[in-house]
């Protein structure tokens, strides 16, 4: 652990001053300054977060999870399909699982509303295409993250996501937020956003808001890499399906059927 600034500040001042004098030493001075000044160490762990949606428990007509999520994350509602922003929402089964023959397979019907959200794929195509690493897969926990500070709004990720999980801020987000949550930032116009698995709270051992808010216990969140985790047990003991498994993206959201 490096105790940094206070001690080294004076030293840096001098260094930069001298570099300024030398004029052409610019890049060097930038290097000295840019790296390490505010560094702090942190531990790494091998975690891959995932979610299991128990379609059998999910109650029709209930949108508690989406409301909780959207409220907590300041997700705007623009009341227009064109500009809409969605992190987690319900969609008829036939839209999620297009290659099933609903007349013969009987676990669920074609129009049954299923919950959908970002799959936090193990192998995300949205991350591959992003030209600025504004979206990337976090090594610690497998969450596909968005950096709203960096996103240039090219929407390549939206074209690349085979699940339609991403939304773009076509309109001023704050205009569509009925009640602001001061603990979470809003977005700015012109950036892409999506579910973040509540990365802001799960670090402290809490479940994502959607999981917390589900009264039916239909949602289970946990570490897919831990064989003893609840989610792993559920997946072991229940039949499950994933969306568009054939594309090789390896979603981390499983549907128990």
């Amino acid at each position: 652990m490096k105790l940094n600034n206070e001690v080294n500040r004076k030293e840096f001042l001098k260094l930069s001053g001298v570099a300024a004098l030398l004029g052409f030493g610019g890049p060097l001075a930038f290097k000295i300054y840019a790296s390490g000044e505010f560094d702090a160490a942190e531990s790494n762990s091998k975690v891959r977060y995932g979610m299991a949606v128990d379609t059998r428990k999910c109650k029709e007509g209930c949108t508690d999870c989406a409301s909780a999520c959207h409220l907590k994350h300041n997700v705007p509602d623009h009341k227009s399909k064109k500009n809409e922003i969605k992190w987690i929402w319900k969609e008829p089964a036939k839209h999620l699982f297009q290659d099933r023959d609903y007349n013969i397979e009987a676990e669920f019907s074609a129009d049954m509303p299923f919950l959908t959200l970002c799959n936090h794929c193990k192998n995300p195509s949205c991350v591959r295409v992003c030209p600025t690493q504004a979206t990337w897969k976090r090594k610690d926990d497998g969450i596909v993250m968005m950096d709203y500070h960096r996103c240039i709004g090219c929407r390549f990720c939206m074209a690349a996501c085979p699940y339609g999980s991403r939304s773009f801020n076509y309109a001023e987000p704050r205009k569509g937020i009925a009640k602001l949550n001061p603990d979470f930032p809003t977005r700015t116009r012109g950036v892409v956003e999506k579910c973040n698995f509540c990365e802001e709270i799960i670090g402290t051992g809490k479940n994502p808001y959607c999981v917390q808010s589900c009264k039916e216990g239909a949602l289970t969140f946990g570490n897919l890499n831990d064989p003893d985790s609840e989610i792993r047990k559920l997946l072991k003991n229940n039949p499950s399906i994933k969306r568009k498994a054939g594309l090789g993206t390896e979603p981390s959201v499983f549907y128990l059927v």
Binding site: R128, P131, A134, C151, I152, G153, C154, R155, F156, V192
Partner: peptide, 29 residues
């Protein structure tokens, strides 16, 4: 046309500031 299509054109230089060889768009630029 690319500039017109960008949600955050003022961040256009991010493509150069955070070069991402894995992205086709980076190469296209």
């Amino acid at each position: 046309f690319i500039m017109a299509d960008m949600g955050q054109p003022q961040r256009a230089f991010n493509i150069l500031l955070h070069p991402t060889p894995g992205s086709v768009l980076f190469w296209d630029m």
